[in-house]
Design a protein around this nucleic acid. Sequence first.
DNA 1: GAAGAATTGAGAACGATTTGCAATTGATCC
DNA 2: GGATCAATTGCAAATCGTTCTCAATTCTTC
Lengths: 138, 138
Amino acid sequence: MTEIETKRSSDWLAGAGLRPTRQRMTLAGLLVGDGQDRHVTAESLFEAASNAGEKVSLATVYNTLRAFCDAGLVREITVDGSKSYFDTNMTDHPHFYWEDSASLTDAPAEDLEICKLPEAPAGAEIASVDVVIRLRRT
Amino acid sequence: MTEIETKRSSDWLAGAGLRPTRQRMTLAGLLVGDGQDRHVTAESLFEAASNAGEKVSLATVYNTLRAFCDAGLVREITVDGSKSYFDTNMTDHPHFYWEDSASLTDAPAEDLEICKLPEAPAGAEIASVDVVIRLRRT
DNA sequence: GAAGAATTGAGAACGATTTGCAATTGATCC
DNA sequence: GGATCAATTGCAAATCGTTCTCAATTCTTC
């Protein structure tokens, strides 16, 4: 991990008040090291860590993603039922879901405009509006 | 099951070319017997059948929901990651997801208007656009 | 009714995720 | 720099929703 990547990672953890353990730094580096947004599953992140030669157990990847999620560092996205995706982009934005490869990418938020939205029923308020655009390869 | 419910159920199955077995009729009756749209999970439908004094195994509920889904009678909705919901309303419409009770209801389709939508990336086409409005009880 | 095909259901198998818990690591205080 | 205590890790077992296997049952058709 380069210096800038290390700094991004530790800042990211510090911002959420999470202790920068070796494992968390490794995963943080893979998630936000290059400053890009990323969509991972526990399995894909575990594999990325393994490929990078880092030793982190799968259970820790699960626990850490959950911790990042609780800390507001990543957002959990459910599109597929069988597995959970985690998105480092916390801003409100739609997603493309590629049905053939079961992968998730960001859709440009500025290209989505909802001009009319159902109101929350009495006694409830809108927590969020999730928009998933399912894609089929042509 | 009243006569009209029986008729609705068998018509529904017949429309999809599914044989009207006792179990399917039971489940169809619970799903569309009263002509209302409904959102169920395998577990909730199994419970409804049990409460109605009908004997259907949980495995059959799963298999039958899958069969109904393949036959285009119901739509599978994924909002929660842990379980699948099935919706008897096949028209394109948004959903309310009640986070506290983990239940799903229809949101009025006429109250949703998307005036700008991201285009499908090259080599892909939009299969569907899923809109889930997450609600928090106030 | 008989024969063959489709359906059912009990239980085993599965895949993703969580949990229990002992060992390790990190932060803090002297 | 240690000692101390809480937080974290990671293995293995446990869970949970769901699917699968396969023998027994039920439908349809002749």
